[in-house]
């Protein structure tokens, strides 16, 4: 037994050494990545001093032409959108950003599933794992999944499902974003259009599924706005279905005196194939058109 435990101890020590060694190397590469998603993240969290920020999921990345906004409003703009992410990520990022910078305006692209509806929030902790050292991030982990505290003891686990991204962004950085904006130059892929009736049915159920944690994080973010104006935008979809799940965000915005722009039933976009590459995402042409519409609204309502 003694011999077995000694060998097991030695193996665990080696495993720990490996975890620290490879984990530290990945941490270094991640922090020094100059391009790709990690470069984008490093810029947002450490360098960015832009006046206008765009938050949101893939609908933010593909819908808001940051250069167009900057040119039109005469203010610098950066699109901080991140695929498949919402308030869980931006709540932590906002806390980290505002320690060193207060932007003038945040355009928050709303995606009900990621920003307000009930769901498995631990799935949105992925991009925050690398920043676990930050107190705000750690607190969020505690609230969402306390067991993560133990998993995060492993440095390797912090790069779970992302290590190839770290290697790529460090060794072969790609600069395919235009101030965070990633246009999709493609026509509508009809295969990606979902059954509208099914979609409407599932959307009608969303009203009852508000996630109290997500709502609290949104409230927190607005409470800590201090000098930053927020504009919530629900950008167009090909289907033109308004998801009533976003209503609590609309109420929240109005209660705090912020703007909520709803483009979901805009006749200009609904069922207009030329503006979309799938049912929920605009293509380059749609994005430019939509960005101009947002700018127009901002000018009208805020005298930018």
């Amino acid at each position: 037994m003694k011999g077995f435990l000694l060998r097991l101890g030695l193996f665990l020590a080696l495993a720990l050494l490996m975890d620290r060694g490879i984990g530290s190397a990945l941490s270094y590469m991640s922090k020094h990545a100059a391009g790709g998603y990690l470069g984008h993240q490093n810029y947002i969290l450490n360098i960015m001093m832009d006046d206008i920020l765009v938050f949101g999921s893939s609908r933010a990345i593909h819908h808001y032409n940051a250069a167009l906004i900057a040119d039109s409003l005469g203010l610098s703009c950066y699109n901080c959108g991140q695929d498949g992410e919402g308030i869980i990520l931006y709540h932590a990022w906002w806390k980290m950003i505002r320690r060193r910078h207060r932007p003038r305006l945040v355009i928050y692209e709303v995606t009900p599933a990621y920003d307000i509806l009930w769901g498995d929030n631990s799935k949105h902790l992925g991009w925050l794992k690398g920043s676990y050292g930050d107190e705000a991030v750690r607190r969020e982990f505690e609230e969402i999944d306390p067991s993560e505290r133990y998993k995060m003891l492993s440095l390797l686990y912090r790069y779970n499902s992302r290590f190839h991204q770290v290697l790529l962004d460090y060794l072969h950085p790609v600069h395919n974003m235009d101030r965070g904006f990633l246009p999709v130059n493609s026509g509508l892929d009809t295969l990606r259009i979902k059954d509208e009736r099914q979609l409407e049915e599932s959307v009608s159920k969303n009203e009852m599924q508000t996630d109290s944690l997500k709502l609290r994080y949104l409230e927190d973010m607005l409470r800590e706005a201090e000098g930053t104006r927020f504009v919530f935008v629900y950008s167009p979809t090909w289907y033109g279905i308004h998801d009533s799940g976003v209503d609590p965000i609309m109420d929240l915005a109005h209660r705090n005196g912020f703007l909520f722009l709803d483009f979901t039933d805009s006749a200009k976009y609904v069922h207009h194939d030329e503006f979309f590459y799938d049912g929920s995402h605009l293509n380059t042409r749609g994005a430019d058109e939509f960005t101009r519409d947002v700018i127009r609204e901002l000018r009208m309502q805020n005298n930018y």
Partner: peptide, 19 residues
């Protein structure tokens, strides 16, 4: 043997789905 154990352990930590 030990290198293969460690390699599998590293793969579990880096590629596993821990839900």
């Amino acid at each position: 043997r030990w290198i293969s154990y460690l390699a599998v352990l590293v793969l579990i930590l880096l590629c596993g789905v821990f839900s």
